[in-house]
Design a protein around this nucleic acid. Structure first.
Length: 589
RNA sequence: GGCGCUGUAGCUCAGUUGGUUAGAGCGUCGCCCUGUCACGGCGAAGGUCGUGGGUUCGAGCCCCAUCAGCGUCGCCA
């Protein structure tokens, strides 16, 4: 007899009396002694299977357990009146068993697969296949797929060509630490895994593809964070003959398309702000634009102060930055002490607080504050009675950075960071150079392929720190999604930047010779961008950690707990690669 | 490498001021149950309290060290 196969989410009342076949896992079994229900689950849903007493498979059904894998043949029937389950798409029907085939048994799982209860992450990662079976991860990974598909669809529509770039490439000295792959054929030489396909996508422009895109895997051997994995995925784009504005329009349209088609959300036009504005208003170059609470510079208010903390900051050419804390007058001294401690962890020297309590102003610097000072600062940040004001005095850069981090904290506490809200923003006009803290020398703030702003080449000798870059960041809810730039396409200009980095002509040739040579054969003007897909999906899913949207992530120690990687390898493999094991490292024969 | 938080049953957690035999829910196992869908009822098993040391008459609880996980700073052009 032929039977139609159905998914476990498909059957409806209209399918009654059909002879069907379903496959799936046992989500749950309910044994009533004389009657057994099995909820069969697959990726589409859950269907109730009924084992009536007297049926030959009833005895088998008594020994079924959660996560056993079944093939079920049976007859669809509508449930008896009053026993429908409105919470289940298939809840009007059930399948009366004709034939039960146990395709595989399951051990008792180490945690419950049929629920989204919190489980220790070690265990989740070790048994990732069980974790991925659970509803939360199924939804996240499927949403990830749909987001990536929408990105590809959009790019295809706009004429982008997906080009796969190699995973085994040349190590270049700049940037993050490389993952290295030893060469068997060339003793002592190594490939590097790409930190990004940067030069390859630029070369694709030189090669005349016009518009390149790739869902690109990138590897960086640096320490992990909630938003950083050793390998991660980027939406990588590059366009020829484009202006910065065209790149921004393309990316913004792409993100709008993704949000519209995948999440059903129409995004407003993205905010635009310069790097300078971002620092001034929000303290950070990746501002959370879901809420206001803009910072204010108030050193003018305290120009004549005797308060030594403020006085010395002003005398040193620094800043006093004020932040409004809505409702903050309700905080206790202890709360303010904790905030001050937090400010120190953010790198600040401390924090001054002013509480605009109904019973009167209170402050950690009360004796230095006049009513006029408090009024002026209140006006500057828009504070009202019942609020508090937090003040940070330091070097200009540090005062803003600390205030910016505190602004996010205040936004969090005031529940202004709604995960359902998506506030995209462009940050442009970055400085080309920054002072490298280790060497004390100017270094490109981003990467060495970025073009300076039009006309700013003229500044390179007389005022290099004033050069701005044709560089742009896309931020979302306080996360940096990615960055891009218009690139240098003239070989002599590229050499000039490498020289500024401190590379000799020989070093340029050895490390970047292939790339500069490519520029010499008619490289078109071009630019592009790369966005962190893991972060995008994380935010779209309302998650706070990218491991929740990566099927097989590594832990903070960069280990794969399921595979137990990295792991020692046999001596022969080591020898083939012309490597020698350090004395203290373990071996495995 | 620094700082912070966490570690008690298979899972999620509680455990008072240091004081008798370390508890609960879920899960597991057994028995009962013909309309449940987080089925229900009765019963049972299950613990080096992360590890090691110390203080104490007595440590899950206090101290030191250490391991693991997470978060964060450094780092991530």
């Amino acid at each position: 007899m032929t039977r139609d196969k159905f998914s476990c989410g498909a059957l409806r009342a209209a399918d009654a009396d059909k002879m069907v076949e379903l496959c799936g896992w046992i989500n749950r079994r309910r044994d009533h002694g004389g009657l057994i229900f099995v909820d069969l689950r697959d990726h589409e849903g859950v269907t109730q299977i009924v084992f009536d007493p007297g049926h030959p498979s009833f005895a088998q059904a008594e020994h079924l357990r959660n996560e056993d894998v079944l093939r079920v043949r049976g007859t669809v029937r509508t449930r008896p009146a009053g026993t429908e389950n409105p919470r289940l798409a298939t809840g009007d029907v059930e399948v009366a068993i004709d034939e039960l085939e146990i395709l595989n048994r399951s051990l008792v799982p180490p945690f419950q697969v049929n629920a989204d209860e919190d489980v220790d992450e070690n265990l989740r990662l070790e048994y990732r296949y069980l974790d991925l079976r659970r509803p939360r991860m199924q939804e996240n990974i499927r949403l990830r797929h749909r987001i990536i598909k929408a990105m590809r669809d959009f790019c295809d529509e706009r004429g982008f060509v997906e080009i796969e770039t190699p995973m085994l490439i040349k190590s270049t000295p700049e940037g993050a630490r490389d993952y290295l792959v030893p060469s068997r054929l060339y003793p002592g030489s190594f490939y590097a895994l790409p930190q990004s396909p940067q030069m390859l996508k630029q070369i694709s422009m030189i090669a005349g593809f016009g518009r390149y895109m790739q869902i690109a895997r990138c590897m960086r051997d640096e320490d992990q964070r909630a938003d950083r994995q050793p390998e991660f995925t980027q939406l990588d784009l590059e366009m020829s003959f484009c202006t910065q504005e065209e790149v921004l329009e393309t990316m913004e349209s792409c993100m709008r398309y993704v949000w519209q088609t995948v999440l059903g959300i129409e995004l407003p036009p993205f905010a635009r702000l310069t790097h300078q504005e971002a620092i001034a208003k929000y303290g950070l170059d990746k501002p959370d634009l879901r809420f206001g609470l803009e910072l204010a510079n108030v050193e003018a208010v305290f120009a004549g102060t005797e308060f030594v903390v403020f006085k010395s900051a002003i005398a040193g050419g620094g800043s006093i930055v004020a932040l409004r804390y809505p409702g903050g007058a309700a905080l206790s001294r202890r709360d303010f002490d904790n905030l001050t401690e937090m400010a120190k962890q953010f790198g600040g020297k401390g924090m001054v607080w002013i509480s605009l309590a109904p019973e009167g102003m209170k402050s950690s610097a009360a004796k230095f504050l006049t009513d006029a000072d408090v009024a002026a600062v209140s006006t500057a940040v828009g504070a009202e009675p019942g609020d508090a004001i937090l003040l940070f005095a330091d070097t200009t850069a540090l005062a803003h950075a600390v205030a910016g981090k505190m602004r996010n904290e205040v936004g969090e506490r005031c529940r202004l960071r709604d995960p359902q809200c998506f506030a995209f923003g462009w940050v442009t006009g970055f400085p080309y150079l920054e002072i490298d803290e280790e060497s004390g020398k100017p270094a490109p703030a981003h990467h060495a392929f970025t073009a300076p702003a039009p006309g700013d080449w003229a500044l390179i000798d007389r005022a290099p720190m004033e050069m701005r870059a044709q560089h742009y960041d896309l931020v979302l809810n306080g996360w940096e999604l990615g960055s891009g730039s218009i690139r240098i396409h003239k070989p002599e200009e590229q050499r000039r930047i490498f020289e500024m980095l401190g590379l000799s002509a020989d070093q340029i040739e050895e490390r970047f010779g292939f790339f500069v040579r490519a520029l010499e054969y008619g490289a078109p003007p071009h630019g592009g961008m790369a966005l962190g897909i893991d972060r995008i999906v994380m935010i779209a899913c309302g998650e706070e950690n990218i491991r929740e949207v990566i099927a097989f992530p590594k832990n903070q120690g960069a280990r794969d707990l399921m595979m137990d990687a990295p792991s020692p390898v046999p001596d022969q493999l080591i020898a083939d690669l012309h490597l020698r094991r350090a004395p203290e490292s373990p071996s495995r024969g």
